[in-house]
Simulated scan of single mutants.
Amino acid sequence: MTKTTGTTGERLGYIRVSTGKQDEQMQHDALDGAGVLKRSRYVDHGVSGAKTSRPALDAMLADVQPGDTIVVYKLDRIGRSTAHVATLIQDLTERGIHIQSVGDGLDSTTPTGKAMLQMLAIFAELERSFIRERTTAGLAAAKAQGRVGGRPRVADSATARKAQTLRDSGESVPEIARTLGVSAATVYRITKAAA
């Protein structure tokens, strides 16, 4: 994409719609009002915000240079979560790239905008702390109930004994797997080769 040059750097716009049925016109209108030329816009169609890789966003992040400004309709267009948005904005800010979110009224070139970004980073760290605490509490509760993390076991001890008996009698591993309704890998894992 061609970028326009101004005295204070380029103004690049990013637009994302999650499904093909969503209309991106409102985002284009916001970028029109913010002075972002159509040829300086990067658009991801039908790409969920939960996806790590978004082709147009990745291309824009590769193209943006220090002094440029990234303009979005809302901050949730560029990130998967508060923590992801804060990390991305911190990275861009450290690279000397400005952020403007038209719908959120955020502009990182202003003192108020800088303060809002710092608050966003604080909330993102708080969100990460809450997630860690919930995960730790959930694991502790599961352990107290005798459960452990990971995938549930496919074969119980009775199934393991049956598998071993069949294997000791000379049955093939694929045949044992079909008989017991488990995978061959499970049969190998729960049995020892017959002597």
Rank of each mutant, 00 (worst) to 15 (best):
Y42D: 01
T82G: 08
G96Y: 02
T87Q: 13
A163Y: 11
Q27E: 01
R77G: 02
A185I: 13
L61P: 05
V173T: 11
T186K: 01
S172W: 03
A34M: 12
M116P: 01
R134K: 10
G9N: 07
L180V: 11
R147I: 07
A155H: 02
A155I: 12
L61V: 14
P66A: 08
T19I: 04
L117S: 02
I97L: 02
G103L: 03
Q118N: 15
A86L: 09
S129Y: 14
K3I: 14
G138D: 13
V173S: 02
T87A: 13
G67V: 10
M60Y: 10
V154A: 11
V148G: 08
G105C: 11
G9W: 03
T82Y: 03
E171R: 10
Q145T: 12
G13R: 09
E133F: 11
A160V: 03
T93M: 05
R11V: 07
T19E: 07
T135D: 04
R189A: 13
T179L: 05
G181T: 11
A195V: 11
R147M: 08
Y14Q: 04
L37K: 12
Q25N: 06
T8P: 00
A59C: 00
T7Q: 10
T136N: 11
V182R: 06
I176D: 04
E125K: 14
K38V: 11
D63R: 12
A30M: 12
A184T: 15
R41Q: 12
K3N: 07
S101H: 06
V43Y: 06
G13M: 03
P174Q: 13
Y42N: 04
T110R: 13
G33K: 15
A144Q: 15
T112Q: 15
E133H: 13
I176W: 08
V85C: 04
E133G: 07
K192R: 15
A177H: 08
G67I: 10
A124Q: 02
D58K: 11
T52P: 01
S172C: 00
